[in-house]
Structures are given as structure tokens and as C-alpha cells.
Design a protein around this nucleic acid. Structure first.
Lengths: 242, 242
DNA sequence: GACCTTATGACAACGGGGTTGACCGGACCA
DNA sequence: TGGTCCGGTCAACCCCGTTGTCATAAGGTC
């Protein structure tokens, strides 16, 4: 009986602590919790406490943890792309869309780790797919090529976002410290290349490679588009390489 | 007291059930567990049961769940790159390395989801970094460029691997079903692009975009290398774009 | 306002999880 | 033979997700 998201619920009784629950409030509180205590810090019980409500009340709004996480993911997508309207250049539009999503993930790394790999199937994600496909189709890709290109694009973005977010989220907690601690002191005898790169390795690993990877990717798309236009006109056949 | 990985432990007492524990056995059993019951199926208690040992015995070998997961991750890296020797062509070598890691992740998607974002700081990962840097430096990249390129390369690979593994691991469990269920039936009025791409979207989303993305990436690296060689000789300055 | 319906919050309980400290037995060395 | 200590076991701690049941206030109807 939980989580019918159609139509705002009509009867809202304040919690014992006085707060009035809603999907939005719960999701927002969950995001705050994750930001604060890390991705492990999100638990139904803690969320209930943070809301001033009994944990089980959450099950009136979401079918379970999974459903809640998906709602969180969708909310983050919405925030990242809020107010985004693609300009005339498909390349610039795609670049901005990617940068926005990437930046949104890095802004809340702990939440991104939790959500970046999820398919939400909700409004904001659907909207993003719609806009992304529109950009690509407007550029001249056919439906098959646009679908595949969008997939490659969004996975590229989310992949880098998740890895960089994970590195950021775990900063100092052990994982990333390894780049400084473990890799810095390896002897050049057994690991000549690591030793040679010692200084720049840690710096490179803590930075982001998304921007350049996205550039390469867009270059590839551009090339493919030109090739497709030369061969098959505006709607490249489905047999394009990508 | 736990988990001094230096030197094989000398005193091994068989478990009540008769098995003789070791780091390797525990890691292998953990991988088997994850493959079987999914990433949530790995628990210290279940692992203990599967080993025929008390759960707490595991803490004699690993400091905690995190340490164990890192060991699992490193073991998977080792398997993926076992016997890999880069050939003379840096591009082919990097491509094979990427494909191996990617394939290794997809072969055990449930384990990959758990481990792909982790920095293990252990032997196999170190070996992989050493080899990868060697390939790039052999191609002519300077230390800074090689470090950055390796980062971009490995994140590209792991990012796609993790997303595709997640999609595979959750097949039928809700996430991926969304592409068929939610996106297939959207009206063309409100979502014209999704509706137009309906057929190819689901297909595109279930497939992999890694191969083409890797191709784009290698094209970009090649271009950058040529440009660097034209400008600064064999060792391009650290100010290269990537 | 009285009354019924029902949405929704609270409570208690279930099984399972990670982790720890105490215990202890047997393996190794002298 | 005896001491040391590695490493397996046990019991217990507190946290977790989830569910079934109950209680109560919101909202509509008359």
C-alpha cells in the first residue's frame, strides 16, 4: 500500500515530533544524512530519527530502501539539470549536460556513490533522456545511432563521476591515501615506472580525467557524424560503427 | 593483530569442520559467495558458514569487511590480467589491457559492482599500474602525461565496467527492467524523442558502449602523442592538454 | 457538530548483520 | 618437557531492514 506517488496524499498527520512528512522532505533529509555521515550513514532508522518520526513511517512513502535510493538518485538528477536548456550547438549542449551531471555528482560525492549506477525510471531521469536524445537527433543522428550514442555518453559521464566521487568520498579514509602511501615509496628496482611517475601519479589520481575524456568522445562523435553525413545523408544508417 | 600479509603464517589449525584457512581460500570463497547470492550476499557470517568456520575467525586474516573487499578486488585484477604481456604496439597493448579488465568485471558482475571503484593498494593493482605506465611511457609520453593518461584510461575502463556490471547484476531485479517497462510506453506527445527511439533504446541500454568509447579515447591519445612529438620531441612537456 | 472511513504515524518484534573481548587448545621452539 | 602465542571458538554488543498490529486524526458526508 505504500508509495503511490500519483497525486499528493490528502491526509497528513504531523509526527509526534511535529514534522509533516512528504516524499520530498524524506528525500531531502536522506540526502542530508548521506552528505553528513557517508553512504553507510543512510539507514531507515537514522532517517526516521532525523525526521523526528518512527522509522516505519517511511514505508508509507517508499516500498523499501531501494525505492528510496532511486528517489534520491532522481532528485539529484533533477537538481543537476535544473534550468538546463540545450543551445544550438549539439556539441556544446552535450558538453554542458555532461559537465552539469558530473559536477552534480562531485558536489555530493557520498550520495553519488550510492546513486550514480542506478536507473531510476522516474521523472527527472526520463526528462534527461528525452533532452539528451533530442540533442543527438537534432545533430543528425538516426534513432539507432542516437540511442547508442546517448548510452555511451551517459555511461561515460556517470562512470567518471562515480569513480571520482568514490575517490573523493573516501579521501583520508584509506582508499585514496593508498596513492600517497603505497605508491610513493615503491623501489625503482621492482617498479621502475611507478617510481619514475611517483610525483605526478598522486596528483593525477586525485584530479579528474573527465574533461579530456569527454573531449575525446565528442571528437569521435563529430567524426562519425561527418562520415555518416557524407555516406548516407542526414540519417546515418544503423550500421555505423558506434 | 590481524592480517599481517608478510610471510605465510606458520601455525595453521584446522577448523572444527576440518578446513584449513588462508587468505587465498577466504578470498576465493568470498568471490564464490558474491557470484552466488549477489553483492548483498557477502557477509562475514555467511562467509564463515561457507568456510566451515566461525565468522570471527575471518578477523584473524582481515581487519574487517573493507579489508576483505579490497583483497577480493585485488584478486580479481590479478585474474583479469593473469599472463598479460604488452605487445610492441602501445595502442594494441592498452586496448587489450582494457578489454581484459572490462571482460573480467563483466564475467562476475556482482563482484565487480562491489570492487570496481576501490583502490586496493595491493600487489596485483600495483602490477597493473606498473604495466600500464610502462606501456604509455614506452609510447613516448612523459611522466606527467603518462600518469594523467593512465588515470583517464583506467577510469574509463572501470567506469564502463561498473555501470555495465551493475546493469547486468540487477537484470530483472527492477533497475534494468525500467528500460523496457517505463521507457517503452511513454507517449510521443510529452516525450517525442524517447518514443521515437523506443525500440532501439532498450537494446542500446543493455549493450555495451565500452568498445567504441575506448576507440575514441585511443584515437585521442594517438593524436595527442603525434602533436606532442611534433612540438617537443619524444618527451612532451607537462603542459599537454590531457 | 456527529460519525464513519481511511490514511498514516507509532509500537513491538523478527531475523540478520559487523565487530569485539574472553577463552582456550594446539603448534612450534627451546 | 615446558613456554609462547597463533588462531579458532563462543557469547555478547548494538545496529540494521522490514512487517504486522494497533491507534488516531484528517476529511468527507449528513
Amino acid at each position: 500500500m505504500a508509495a503511490d506517488r500519483l497525486g499528493a496524499q490528502r491526509r497528513r498527520r504531523p509526527t509526534r515530533a511535529g514534522t509533516v512528512l512528504s516524499h520530498e522532505l524524506i528525500v531531502a533529509t536522506a540526502i542530508r544524512l548521506v552528505d553528513l555521515h557517508g553512504s553507510d550513514g543512510l539507514s531507515v532508522r537514522r532517517l526516521g530519527a532525523a525526521l523526528g518520526a518512527d522509522p516505519s513511517a517511511i514505508y508509507r512513502y517508499f516500498t523499501g530502501t531501494d525505492d528510496l535510493v532511486r528517489a534520491v538518485a532522481d532528485s539529484l538528477i533533477g537538481r543537476a539539470l535544473d534550468g538546463f536548456v540545450p543551445g544550438p550547438s549539439w556539441r556544446a549542449a552535450l558538453a554542458e549536460m555532461g559537465e552539469r551531471i558530473y559536477a552534480g555528482c562531485l558536489a555530493r560525492p557520498r550520495a553519488a556513490v550510492l546513486t550514480a549506477a542506478r536507473v531510476t525510471g522516474r521523472v527527472h531521469e526520463i526528462q534527461a533522456v528525452e533532452v539528451g536524445l533530442g540533442i543527438l537527433r537534432g545533430a543528425g543522428f538516426g534513432v539507432a545511432a542516437a540511442s547508442r550514442s546517448y548510452h555511451a555518453f551517459i555511461d561515460l559521464t556517470l562512470g567518471y563521476a562515480m569513480l571520482d566521487a568514490a575517490a573523493l568520498a573516501l579521501s583520508g579514509a584509506g582508499d585514496v591515501a593508498a596513492w600517497g602511501d603505497v605508491y610513493a615509496g615503491l623501489p625503482s628496482g621492482s617498479h621502475p615506472n611507478i617510481a619514475a611517475c611517483a610525483g605526478s601519479l598522486e596528483q593525477a589520481m586525485s584530479g579528474s580525467a573527465y574533461a579530456s575524456a569527454l573531449g575525446f568522445f565528442l571528437d569521435g562523435l563529430t567524426l562519425e557524424l561527418e562520415r555518416g553525413e557524407k555516406v548516407g545523408g542526414r540519417f546515418g544508417g544503423p550500421e555505423n560503427r558506434l
